[in-house]
Simulated assay, not measured.
Amino acid sequence: MNTPVFAPWADPDAKPLIRFQNVTKSFGDFTAIDDLTLDIFEREFFALLGPSGCGKTTMMRMLAGFEEPTQGRIELAGRDIAAVPPNKRAVNMMFQSYALFPHLSVWENIAFGLRREGKDKAAIAARVEDMLKLTRLQKFARRKPHQISGGQRQRVALARSLAKAPKLLLLDEPLGALDAKLREDTQFELMDIQEKTGTTFVIVTHDQEEAMTVASRIAVMDEGKIMQVDTPDRIYEVPNSVYVADFIGDVNILDGTLTANGENSFALHYAPDQAPITARSDRPFTDGQSAHLAIRPEKVAIHKEKPEGVDNLLSGEVLDIAYLGNLSTYHVRLPGGQVVKAQIANTRRLSRRDITWEDKVWISWTFTAGVLLDQ
């Protein structure tokens, strides 16, 4: 039996849990959020991704109730939440610092919000035990925060945030304080917990890899605007602009002018005295239009000898090599001065490189490997 694909955003009848409608947020003369419209659906793990100062944390603070929109409307479950104070919203926020109470045990930290709500002792105990089990912290229940590791503290903060069963959990750079290996492990724990609880998670991050790993959808932001909202695979494979292509992962961008050479087929003239590159696109382009070809390094093959029967073949010289353990990236300078990166998986142990610095090489890619962009 096939499991149905989770994609409420593709269902025209699905009602969003969160709706930003033409939201603007200004601080004096500075516009942090600029006429932004966005829907986020129940059970999504949604990532707000962008560089520092792009407005992603401001969006989260408006959802939490710490900021109010200057213009526009924010709805949660169909209700305008502008007049609802932070402590009355079905929303919880987990901060980067975790903000645990140092004098309280792990158990008491998780119980804190439930006690504030006046729940009875048996209900609190049962809920805390559920949260300890969910986050695998039963053994550490009586310890204080300083007696456990950074990753465990992160799980305590998560358990405390989920204890009150919020409709929505906001995570502000939640893994920023962890080292790389622990961050990677914790990403998968977060995904597992989100799936088990069914809570809608909205995460703010500037880490592209983190967003690509955990999110059902990603909103790539810049200067208070959303540049693209889509699933991680489409953001990576079908970016809608040079900004998005360049922000997510590694990419080669070749600029030039286009001429049509068949149905949905174009020639990109990228350098004088060089044969044009051919590329396919369903987007409409006109002859003579400026365009950019975005192509990922892993889609570029590198050859010592000139191959036959390839769609796009360019000659060049190896300028640099980056050895990354599992991958090697070759920086190849073309006759026009452009540098194109070709990435090869190191499937065998390297005893001697076939291709090295200053070698004359050929690079190639298929007709459909690149994405033509007009902005």
Rank of each mutant, 00 (worst) to 15 (best):
G65T: 08
L372F: 13
F41N: 11
Y323M: 15
L162F: 00
L170E: 07
D13I: 08
L63G: 05
I33A: 08
L350T: 12
K360P: 00
W357V: 13
R136Y: 06
Q187I: 09
T197D: 12
L162D: 00
T199I: 15
D29E: 15
Q138C: 15
S149R: 14
R155P: 05
F30E: 08
I33K: 09
R348V: 06
I218P: 00
F112P: 08
I355G: 03
V251R: 08
K225C: 08
I81V: 01
P4H: 05
N346I: 01
L268F: 06
E75P: 10
I355F: 05
K181P: 01
A279W: 04
S290A: 13
R79K: 15
R136V: 11
I321E: 05
D287M: 02
A159R: 05
A126M: 10
V339E: 00
Q71P: 13
A32Q: 10
T356S: 08
D250Q: 14
E44K: 05
G256F: 07
G336K: 09
Q228K: 11
M94C: 02
P69T: 10
I18E: 11
L63K: 09
V242G: 04
P51W: 06
Q289L: 03
P85N: 11
K144D: 13
W9H: 13
L49Y: 06
A157N: 04
L314C: 05
A32M: 12
F41G: 08
Q71D: 15
F46T: 03
K144H: 14
A180V: 03
T37N: 13
V204Y: 05
N92E: 12
